[in-house]
Amino acid sequence: MSTDLDIILKKYKQGKREDLIPLLQEIQDDLGYLSEEAIVKIGGFLGLSTTKIYGLATFYDRFRFLPSGKIQISICHGTSCFLNGSQSIINKIKEETGVLPGHTTRDGNFSYEVVSCMGGCCNGPVINVNGQYHTHVKAEQLPELIKRLKYIIEND
C-alpha cells in the first residue's frame, strides 16, 4: 500500500498546501478511505501538521476514515426524492443494516451514504448501488434487494 501512496505523492512534487485536497481525494479513490498512515505521511510530505489534515478532512463529507463496505449504497435525499419519500428509504436502510450513514457494517459488507440530488428527479426516489441506479424505489423492496446483494457477496 505504501508504494501506491508514494506513486501518488510523486505526482505532487511541489507539495503545496493547495494540493492537499486533490491529494487526499486521489488517495481515497485509490485506497477507498484515508488511513492514519496515509494522513501522517501526507503531513510529512506537505510539511503540515496531522492535526490540520485531520481537521480539514473531517470537515468534508466525502472523506472517510474507515473502508467502505463491499456494497456501497447512495440514497438520494434531494428535494424531489424527499417529496417522493426518500426518508422512508433511509429509515429502512438504517434498520436493515443497523448502521448510520457514512458507517460500514461490522462484517464489512454494507455502507451507505445520503446524498443530495443525483439528477434523476422525476424518477425518484433514486438510489445507487455500487454504481448502478435504481429508480422509483420503495422501502418495501429494500430487504429483498439487500438479501440479494448479500447473496452475491457471499458467493463471490
Binding site: D19, I21, L56, D61, R62
Partner: peptide, 26 residues
C-alpha cells in the same frame, strides 16, 4: 478542474477559496 470534497457551504465564495487553498471550507 477541482472537485469539491463534500460540503454545501463551500459553494459560498470565501469558503470556496478556503477549500481551494487546502483549508477547512469555512
Amino acid at each position: 478542474i477541482r472537485v469539491e470534497p463534500g460540503a454545501f457551504v463551500c459553494g459560498e465564495e470565501t469558503a470556496l477559496i478556503n477549500t481551494l487553498e487546502g483549508k477547512r471550507g469555512m
